[in-house]
């Protein structure tokens, strides 16, 4: 567990945040506008200045996310730390976020429109190495790993799984990409069969019905599934022969709101340092409870 927490430390996130700020500062408004126009966003929308709401901040939360309850509590903590009044706007989407997942089921244009019209900050945005130039991220508030999950007692590690056996991944995720890249370093006869699925629920079901021997999956999904299905017997293997970056979660804001972002990021840093965020994440089942 200690190793997992160190991988998700905000220290890495601070470096990312600084880099993101630097990148954002270099982007001209014209470049952002051009990217948005390519996606069909109207000139009126690009120019739109969102309503002024005084000393109040609106956090938008994906109500279908596995992280929603955690984020409601965290939003309150952040606002309290910054002496802000706050409102939580619950977002539901079509298509909805599937079970055992966090991903907001919206395209970039719609996220832009949410930030322009409704949300000061969208919670649960996954900070990865690429994001649209009209979004600026806060300091990460939570890192959660991708793990290898197997049926209990069957395997102790990836190398125990016989070659050519099927391993499930979620299509086109970083974990999927890393698995493909890793297998390309192996002789063809030493590769497993990669089977891709669209969502975490499918992944777990296919593990348990023996369609695949192992799955690469976002750890909170396994924790939530086990909480809902105590009879499930799943082992989590954290040591994988290739590094998979943990999913870092941030608040997504508009680039012109750097001042607000700095305040919110200060609050996140303080809540990380005093253990509040870690406590909330464990309480909401996003991180494993510490062992005895």
């Amino acid at each position: 567990m200690a190793e997992r927490r160190s991988r998700s430390s905000p220290a890495n996130g601070m470096v990312r945040l600084a880099a993101a700020f630097a990148v954002t500062a270099l982007l001209s408004g014209a470049a952002i506008a051009q990217d948005l126009r390519e996606l069909g966003v109207t000139d009126d929308e690009i120019r739109n200045q969102r309503r002024v709401t005084g000393n109040s901040i609106t956090f938008c939360i994906n109500a279908d996310s596995l992280m929603a309850d955690f984020e409601r509590d965290l939003a309150a903590e952040i606002a309290t730390a910054q002496l802000l009044e706050f409102e939580i706007a619950e977002i539901t989407t079509m298509p909805p976020t599937p079970a055992y997942d966090f991903r907001l089921g919206l395209d970039d244009v719609t996220i832009f429109r949410l930030l322009a019209n409704r949300c000061d900050a969208i919670m649960g945005y996954s900070l990865l190495s690429a994001f649209p130039n009209w979004i600026t991220p806060s300091l990460p508030y939570l890192g959660t790993p991708t793990v290898l999950a197997v049926r209990s007692g069957e395997y102790a590690g990836l190398d125990d799984i016989p070659r050519a056996r099927p391993i499930g991944t979620r299509s086109a995720t970083l974990a999927d990409n890393y698995l493909m890249a890793y297998m390309r370093t192996l002789p063809e006869a030493s590769r497993w069969e990669r089977v891709f699925y669209r969502d975490n629920g499918q992944l777990i079901e296919r593990l348990l019905d023996r369609s695949v021997d192992a799955i690469l999956i976002w750890e909170p999904a396994i924790l939530a599934y086990e909480a809902a299905h105590p009879e499930a017997r799943i082992d989590v293997i954290t040591t994988i022969p290739f590094a998979i970056e943990p999913s870092q979660f941030v608040l997504a804001l508009r680039p012109q709101e750097q001042f607000i972002n700095l305040g919110l990021s200060d609050a996140i840093a303080a809540l990380t340092a005093d253990g509040t965020i870690n406590r909330l994440a464990i309480a909401h089942g996003l991180l494993p409870a510490p062992g005895p």
């Binding site: 996606l39 069909g40 938008c60 706007a89 619950e90 977002i91 539901t92 989407t93 079509m94 909805p96 089921g105 919206l106 395209d107 244009v109 719609t110 429109r113 949410l114 322009a116 019209n117 409704r118 949300c119």
Partner: peptide
């Protein structure tokens, strides 16, 4: 037509 979080689910732009 407006991105209104109080008016049911939000659909994607396309």
């Amino acid at each position: 037509q407006t991105v209104d979080t109080t008016n049911g689910p939000i659909f994607n732009s396309l």
